[in-house]
Design a protein around this nucleic acid. Structure first.
Length: 481
DNA sequence: TTTTGAGTTGTTCGA
DNA sequence: GTCGAACAACTCAAA
């Protein structure tokens, strides 16, 4: 942390994706070094930075901000909302309030990094200090490079350096905040983050955005899911995963806190539990790795990391894309995943791989197209992770991904949703399909369809493509590269 | 500089 | 039904 010897009369805490009070380095430093604070959130819909949040993210953001507003008010703080370009908002605010310093936690999207550098320069010209802190990751990307200073390109080598990770002590939530009174702001509602049409009922049911919801999700996971995470995480019908991703994306909980809690749990476990904790921590390291990659390969969201993928012959079928997006491909596990995404703003990780593989390998539609859909529909949409994972599936990412790794949606369904309960939940028209046919209903005899009250290919579609043929086509296209 | 070992999550085929 | 091998070649990390 920066040693701040200077005391400021007025400081601005610019909250971005660190929507929490606990273990928030920028907030704590500001409280300790300023007599009074302006707590600011800026909504810049037309982007100082590219990749403005998608629909599901905005919904989450609205509720997360509402929760933060309440929590800050309880310690005397007042969250001020402003809309517009960050540069204009900050310079106006600095002039009108005579604030002498701005405090932020660093982010790692290339557009944000560039904008922050500009802002810092502009503020310095007006004599305003800029203090940025490490609050979003376990380790700063610039500190996790190889001995020669070059960036890691392989996950396992990257992850190895976290073996002896030592973390700064956690910071308590501020007990008291002195707010600058009477700062003019917009209302949260006027930011229009919520959708005009209420499609979000399913999201509201499934989630509790905000710091309390995040801590609750962590507690629930540690008491119910973590011990069996190693195997349980692969079964989408079980509650085997943490569901922390949107909370971590918006910084409602500190990843250092999560790491510590998981390590604390591990200490009291037998071999299986220790292995589960290790596997889960590796998932946190994949999150780190994605930010590392985005830092050193800023084109990752649009360009394949492996150059030979430039010019890959992707298909452009609106009809297939629509079938995938709406969950009407005729492959139940794929359709269940895509409908879970649409209804709840989230999809189980195992199923994300299956639907992504299906889009890229079976339909041969570009990973960028899939990434854009996820960006708009996921409550946890995160530029670094979205880009890294789509590239991983497509095989054009940093790690070696064998060209022959093509998921078979029927086998995956049978293996990870053996009784079909995940499919039944999200593809209710198949609720009565016997388990034997649930992952390949086109193979079911006519009387089985009839017995379920279904017209074959009408009430539930036949496969848009034949997997076996599509697999051959993909292998051929990849080998021609 | 050269060498060596290794690389998140799979599927198919034939014995 | 289960099991092991094959499925390419290449790049990266580290000694």
């Amino acid at each position: 942390m920066h040693p701040l010897s200077m005391k400021y009369k007025t400081g601005i805490v610019w909250l971005r994706r660190d929507l929490r009070l606990k273990d928030n380095p920028a907030l704590t430093a500001a409280v300790e070094s300023c007599e009074r604070l302006i707590l600011l959130y800026i909504w810049s819909p037309d982007g100082d930075a590219e990749w403005s949040p998608g629909g599901a993210s905005r919904y989450w953001l609205h509720h997360s901000l509402a929760a933060l507003q309440t929590a800050l008010a309880q310690v005397g703080g007042e969250l001020v909302f402003r809309r517009g370009a960050a540069d204009a908002v900050l310079s106006e605010l600095v002039r009108s309030t005579h604030a002498a310093a701005v405090f932020v936690n660093r982010l790692y999207e290339p557009g944000v990094v560039a904008r922050d550098a500009q802002l810092q320069k502009h503020l310095a010209r007006d004599g305003v200090a800029w203090h940025d802190f490490a609050g979003h990751l376990l380790k700063e990307p610039r500190n996790s490079v190889k001995a020669d200073g070059s960036p890691y390109q392989v996950y396992s080598a990257f992850a190895r350096q976290y073996a002896d990770l030592s973390l700064d002590p956690e910071l308590a939530a501020p007990a008291q905040i002195q707010a600058v009174p009477g700062v003019v702001g917009d209302s949260l509602d006027s930011l229009n983050l919520r959708p005009p049409v209420d499609w979000a009922a399913g999201i509201a049911e499934a989630w509790q955005p905000g710091e309390n919801g995040a801590q609750h999700a962590l507690d629930t996971f540690i008491t119910r899911g973590l011990a069996a995470y190693g195997t349980g995480r692969d079964f989408p019908a079980k509650n085997g995963v943490s569901r922390l991703s949107p909370h971590l994306h918006f910084g409602e909980i500190s990843v250092r806190h999560v790491w510590r809690q998981v390590s604390g749990f591990e200490a009291a476990q037998g071999a299986a539990g220790r292995e589960s904790a290790r596997v889960f921590r590796n998932e946190l390291l994949w999150r780190e790795f994605s930010h590392h990659l985005l830092t050193f390969y800023p084109a990752m969201p649009t360009q394949p990391l492996k150059p030979k993928f430039h010019g890959f012959p992707w298909e452009h079928s609106e009809e297939w894309l629509m079938a995938w997006q709406k969950g009407r491909t005729g492959y139940p596990i794929v359709d269940a995943g895509m409908r879970q995404l649409w209804q709840t703003g989230w999809m189980h990780n195992r199923v994300r791989m299956i639907v992504a593989s299906f889009l890229v390998k079976d339909l041969r539609i570009s990973w960028q197209t899939g990434q854009e859909w996820f960006w708009d529909t996921l409550v946890d949409a995160d530029l670094a992770q979205n880009a890294m994972n789509w590239q991983w599936v497509a095989g054009c990412g940093a790690d070696a991904a064998p060209y022959f790794r093509i998921f078979n949606p029927v086998l995956q369904g049978r293996k990870f949703d053996p009784d079909g309960s995940y499919v039944r939940q999200y593809v209710p028209e198949l609720a009565n399909m016997p388990a034997r046919w649930i992952h390949a209903p086109w193979e079911a005899p006519a009387e089985v369809w009839k017995g379920c009250g279904l017209r074959r290919g009408v009430d539930y579609p036949l496969p848009v493509v034949d997997h076996s043929a599509a697999r051959k086509g993909a292998l051929e296209a990849y080998s021609r590269m």
